[in-house]
Simulated scan of single mutants.
Amino acid sequence: MFEIRIHSRGGQGGVTAARLLALAAIHDGKYATAAPFYGAERRGAPIVSFVRIDDKPIRIYSQIKKPDMVIVLDASVMDVVDVLQGLKSGGRVLVNSAHAREFKGFTSSHVDLTGIALKENLVVAGSPILNTPVIGALAKIGIVSVDSAKRAIRETFTDERNVKAAEAAAKEMSA
């Protein structure tokens, strides 16, 4: 089972990104679950979402304490949350950033999801929406296929800018 923890802020699309990723994995013929974890938080508060992907049915629906991968949609969350807590040795970290960040003992990648969302004018209430660009980045590194990522996005959103943002993130993604 491959387990992913997504750190974001309310209103950025982290919860929807988890759902999109699970849907794309299902389109790839996998089993997947997505679960958010938040209370009465509001826009801008730290949010955590979880995704599990497996070849077998998944019977766990809970927080992920020891993920294989951590995704950080807002680097400022790292100032208040230990995003690497429990990350498995050799795990992967994907950070929304225009600049590379190194995390000792982990494979790290970065892509400017915010810049892509702003370029495509994917903004709600003044906040760039990062859910569809991050799905493109995850497709680039092979978590889901590009075709399934696009299919999941199109099933969820009618605005083709979302697919363009995913394609741009895949193109700009650091390997």
Rank of each mutant, 00 (worst) to 15 (best):
S62R: 12
D74R: 08
E160D: 15
A166R: 15
N96V: 00
S49R: 09
F2Y: 11
G14S: 07
G115W: 11
V144D: 10
D79C: 01
Y61T: 04
K119T: 00
L20H: 08
G136N: 14
V80G: 05
R154Q: 14
P36D: 06
A165H: 12
P57K: 12
L113G: 11
R43H: 09
A170K: 15
R9S: 13
L87M: 06
S97P: 09
K119I: 00
L94R: 09
L20A: 07
E3Y: 12
L118Y: 04
F2G: 00
L23G: 07
T33Y: 06
T114A: 07
R101I: 00
P46F: 02
I141C: 09
Y31S: 06
Y31C: 02
L130W: 08
A168E: 14
Y31W: 10
V146F: 12
P36K: 04
A139N: 13
T114H: 10
I141S: 09
N121T: 03
Q12R: 14
A175V: 00
K66E: 15
Y38H: 11
N121R: 15
M1I: 08
V80C: 08
K88Q: 14
K56I: 07
I47L: 13
G14F: 01
E167L: 10
L94E: 08
T156Y: 06
K30T: 09
V48L: 03
S49T: 02
A175C: 06
V124K: 14
A40F: 03
V48K: 08
S97L: 02
K164C: 01
G90H: 08
R92H: 12
L130M: 11
D159A: 09
S127Q: 15
D159F: 01
S145A: 05
N131Q: 13
A169W: 13
L118R: 14
S89M: 04
I26M: 15
V80L: 10
K56Y: 15
A75H: 14
A175N: 14
V51M: 04
V51G: 05
Y38C: 04
G44R: 15
A35V: 10
V123I: 08
L94P: 06
A117F: 08
T16H: 12
R43I: 02
I53S: 01
I71S: 00
A139M: 13
K150S: 04
D147W: 03
D55C: 06
D54T: 02
P67K: 04
A168L: 12
G136Y: 12
Y31H: 10
D54F: 13
Y38Q: 07
L94N: 05
